[in-house]
Design a protein around this nucleic acid. Structure first.
Length: 96
DNA sequence: AAGATGACGCCCG
DNA sequence: CCGGGCGCCATCT
């Protein structure tokens, strides 16, 4: 399960983002958004900063949230307040 | 075994 | 936009 989710997260290209819910669904585990968090927490070498809450909101709190902002901005993602414009940066998973 | 937690999501007022 | 409530589910106490 976690491995499936991590595989999905790893597919998010630089400069693009996704959401916990999207990752859960795309990995074959719809509704398991909370488990995506667990997967990211336990994993390493994954672009965790590219995963946001529904609506493109940064759900991370405190210092980590600040870091996520910096990382996203450094990839060219525009952040307004605490939200990201999904219309513009959301990554769409596909099966080729 | 039972209750609490959380980087969640969705609906309603 | 903001707050409140409920469903969800692996993990931790």
């Amino acid at each position: 399960m976690f491995t499936d989710m991590l595989a999905v997260v790893r597919r998010i290209p630089k400069g693009r983002v996704s959401t916990y819910g999207e990752v859960a669904t795309a990995s074959g585990h719809p509704g398991a958004a909370r488990q995506v968090v667990w997967a990211l927490r336990a994993a390493t070498n994954v672009p965790w900063h590219r995963v946001l809450g529904a609506g493109g909101r940064i759900r991370l709190t405190g210092d980590s949230g600040f870091e996520q902002r910096l990382r996203l901005q450094s990839e060219g993602v525009i952040i307004t307040g605490d939200k990201i414009d999904l219309k513009r940066f959301r990554h769409v998973f596909r099966h080729t």
